[in-house]
Amino acid sequence: MKFKTACCVFFFIAFLGTANAQKISSSELFNKLPEIEDRECSFKQEKILKNIQKPLVSNGNFKLVKGEGVYFETVYPIKSTVSYTNKEYKQINDIILAVSNRKYSRLDREFSLDYSKNKNVWTLKLEPREGSKAFKYLDFIELTGSEKIDKTVIVTKDGSKTTQWFMEK
C-alpha cells in the first residue's frame, strides 16, 4: 500500500470524534455528520493481509485531541504507542487537522461518497475516483456509526482488509 493511501485511511480515523445509499457531496455529508469532539475510547483491530495464515488481531486505547491529532496505544499483543501528531506523520496529521477544522474539499476531489442510513446507524462508503492518488492502491473505505463512528473498514487493491472497532470504555 502506498504511503499516500495510508494518509487517506487516516483521514477517516479522524471522524472518530462523532454518519438508504445515495451519492452525496462532502458539503451535504457533513451537515449530516455529527461534530467532531475530543474522544477517548478502546479499539480493536483486525488486519487480514494477503498470504498470511490468520488475521492480525490487536487492541488498545484510542485518543483524539481536536486540533492536535490522534493516539493509538496498542496493548495487545505488543505494547506500542503511535501518535499522528508529529512531523514524522505530518501528512496524516495534516489531514486529521483539516477534518477537525472542517475543510473537506479534498474529499470531493479524491472520492465518490455513498451515504446510507438504517434507523440510527449510518454507513458511509468512500471509493477513490479514477485518476485520484488513492485509486491505484485503495479499493474502498467504509465507516459505520450512530452518534460517533463505531467501525471502519479499509480494503486495499491487493486484497488486504483492516477493520477497526471503537468502543466506549
Binding site: M1, A6, F43, L49, K50, N51, L56, V82, I92
Partner: peptide, 11 residues
C-alpha cells in the same frame, strides 16, 4: 500492528 502501517512488499 500499526493502525497506519503498510506493507509494500507483502508480509
Amino acid at each position: 500492528y500499526n493502525p497506519g502501517g503498510f506493507q509494500i512488499a507483502g508480509v
